[in-house]
Design a protein around this nucleic acid. Structure first.
Ligand SMILES: [Zn+2]
Ligand SMILES: [Zn+2]
Ligand SMILES: [Zn+2]
Ligand SMILES: [Zn+2]
Lengths: 146, 146
DNA sequence: TTGGTAAATGAAAATATTTTTCAATTAGCA
DNA sequence: TGCTAATTGAAAAATATTTTCATTTACCAA
């Protein structure tokens, strides 16, 4: 059994949710990954943490955790949603190659000012953003010009 | 038959795609809407433009148009993807409400400097970007606090 | 114009994803 | 320890998407 943030467990309890081994398993799987995971992927990895866990339970737990704000739903291409643990920032940054689909992450973005401006203008309460640059990596530029 | 941008048609032709009435219908429906539409919604409205059009054709056409960059896929909660027409060229900006899936466009972004920096650092030739802010619109903030 | 031809279409079936239902099990509490 | 409401998993249902394939059609060349 791996470590789960005490805070998260406390949050569950405060809301009257029971802490079942299945829920621990889902939390462990998501917390251990630094990538977005689909329910199916979580199901697969969850089998190692709690053999026999059902896919339905995965769905239910994900919905609950998202509602608690512990994890968040992410947009992905592909035909399934995915989730990741909510870390402090709310930033999702990618640099994607149209040629080979390589994805590079980057950290800085400096969108705070724009975010505030939009928030004032539209009344939105903004909680995060997704910033993706699309282009061609060095390798694919070479291939294209060859 | 409503107006479709000549540019878009030219783009199809350049890529060797045929211009069928079904494709015109899908384009008209998407161009006429200022909201993002799911394939099912496009199918429904498409019936008025071209009775008998099949849902499969909607899916296929959407995929093609997205690949051409004419429309783009949007992240929404809910269990279906959705699409809207791509208005600005390299820029693609959305402000999305997690509560009601409203999508608001905005124009300025000032990502030029970051784009150049990333380009230098990674060697990517960057051709565009997608910037999505996620949050809650005024209406949904009220509902949540009620 | 008029075929010829590859691309595109629609129906149906196959797959994939998500939700609902319900009987059996279990976490948390008195 | 035993009670009870919450939770679980299997199966079925509901949705969403993709594949297959025979038929039709847009477009080009003659
Ligand atoms: Zn950021
Ligand atoms: Zn590449
Ligand atoms: Zn921009
Ligand atoms: Zn809203």
């Amino acid at each position: 059994m791996k470590l789960i943030e005490k805070e998260i467990i406390a949050k569950l309890r405060r809301r009257g949710y029971k802490l079942t081994p299945q829920r621990r398993a889902v939390l462990n799987v998501i917390a251990a990954s630094h990538e977005h995971l689909t329910p199916a992927a979580i199901y697969e990895r969850g089998q190692q943490e709690h053999p026999g866990i059902g896919l339905v339970t995965i769905y239910r737990t994900l919905e609950m955790l998202a509602e608690l704000g512990v994890i968040c739903k992410v947009n992905t291409e592909g035909s399934s949603r995915s989730y990741l643990i909510r870390r402090a920032s709310g930033h999702h940054h990618h640099l994607i190659c149209s040629g080979c689909n390589t994805v590079v992450d980057f950290t800085t973005c400096d969108l705070g000012e724009l975010e505030q401006k939009l928030s004032r203008k539209t009344g939105f309460k903004i909680e995060g953003h997704l910033l993706e640059f699309i282009g061609y990596c060095q390798k694919c530029q070479k291939v294209a010009s060859a």
